[in-house]
Amino acid sequence: MHLSGQILTPSGLVEGTLDFAERITGIAAHPAPRRYILPGFIDVHVHGGGGGDTMDGPEGVRTLARFHARHGTTTLLPTTITNPWERVLQALEGVRQVRAEGVTDGADILGAHLEGPFVSPQRLGAQPPNAILPDPERLEQVLALDVVRVVTLAPELEGALEAGVRFAKAGVRVSLGHTAGDYEQACTLIRRVQAVGGVAGATHLYNAMGGLQGRDPGPLGAVLASEECYAELILDLEHVHAGSFRAAYHAKGDRLLLITDAMRAAGMTEGESELGGQKVIVREGRALLENGTLAGSVLTLDRALRNAVSCGVPLAAASRMLSDTPARYLGLGDRGRLEAGLRADIVVFNAQLDLEEVWVAGRRIL
């Protein structure tokens, strides 16, 4: 197969043709149409979309994988929500089943993001009140499934430091979030994870972690100050102000990755929906619990790309936050960039940044 346009390579935009089958075979430079050929997007934090949700089990995972693929996401981690422990384990088993079977007309499922229940009861955000401690028995139950790639962990919880080390040694990315902890607790978790060769991150930067003050930097300050810590950010311009996004962009550089944190209502008509068993109302692009708390988003990553550009970020940098950075975060060497030998995960946008084509491992989805 061949695609012609402005191809985003690791060295910048190249005008020419991208040749590929299941993997990219080459790039030839020559005059080409003014459309943008970018690496497929990787979403490390997505609960649902198109009416499906990770907590629904295998069919919910397939539904969200198909929906987000039509918006440029070629790889994703279905994400759990804080629920009774047995329900969380069932959801992880559902992700494992779909990962084994694949979704022929959807995004590639690499594994799961375990967001909850190892979170602070004081910083639930839109999570249901089923938070529990990360005790060794629960950790071993999770790790035995061999499906979790990212775990959200509040660093102040009893047993959190030991859990962070255990997850890191198993190759799981440890993402601090939904935390009422302080700067020192966050720094300690980051250091402990990195000391055993692990990778630390932050779950939806700014949200459910408090703010940054001159004499009280908090977990946010710990993440921004760490050169090696990655950070997710929901760029729907509802969860995070454009100015806050730009501050994070300049502070984190190539450690900032954009996510959707999307719920089942993404792509559906506005009105009543559900998140983790809780009623959600979606109106004018905002998803709110009945108490007014901002819930999961209805964002898609093609829109996140346009939002980043509208905030003044160059297209190449915006694309990196959606592809190369999450690939590096997850330790993926086979995707996230357009170069010979890598998976042909490709998205094509017109000059106005409207999504026109999506390819997953050389198969056209859109």
Rank of each mutant, 00 (worst) to 15 (best):
M1H: 13
S4F: 10
G5N: 00
L8I: 12
L8T: 03
S11P: 05
L13W: 14
D19R: 09
D19M: 12
D19T: 14
F20M: 07
R23L: 02
R23G: 04
A29G: 01
A32T: 02
H47N: 14
G50F: 12
G52F: 00
T54D: 00
M55K: 07
G57S: 15
P58W: 08
V61Y: 03
T63F: 01
L64Q: 02
R66D: 01
F67N: 12
A69T: 09
T74D: 01
T74A: 11
P78R: 06
V88G: 05
G94F: 04
R96V: 03
D105W: 01
G106A: 09
D108Y: 08
A112E: 03
H113P: 13
L114R: 02
G116V: 11
V119H: 03
P128M: 05
A131D: 11
D135C: 07
A154S: 05
P155W: 06
P155M: 03
A163W: 06
F167Y: 15
R173D: 09
L176T: 09
A180M: 06
A180L: 02
G181M: 04
D182I: 08
A186R: 00
L189H: 00
R191E: 15
A195F: 06
T203Q: 04
A208T: 11
R215W: 12
L220Q: 06
S226I: 10
E227Y: 02
L237W: 08
H239N: 05
G243V: 00
R255A: 12
L257H: 02
A265F: 05
A265W: 04
A266G: 10
G267A: 11
T269H: 14
S273T: 15
E274D: 15
G276L: 13
Q278T: 14
V282K: 06
V282Y: 05
G285W: 11
N291C: 09
N291G: 12
N291P: 08
L294N: 13
L294P: 12
L299N: 09
T300I: 08
V309K: 00
L315V: 12
A318C: 13
A327I: 06
G331V: 14
A344I: 12
D354M: 03
L355P: 06
E356K: 10
E357Q: 14
V360T: 01
L366W: 09
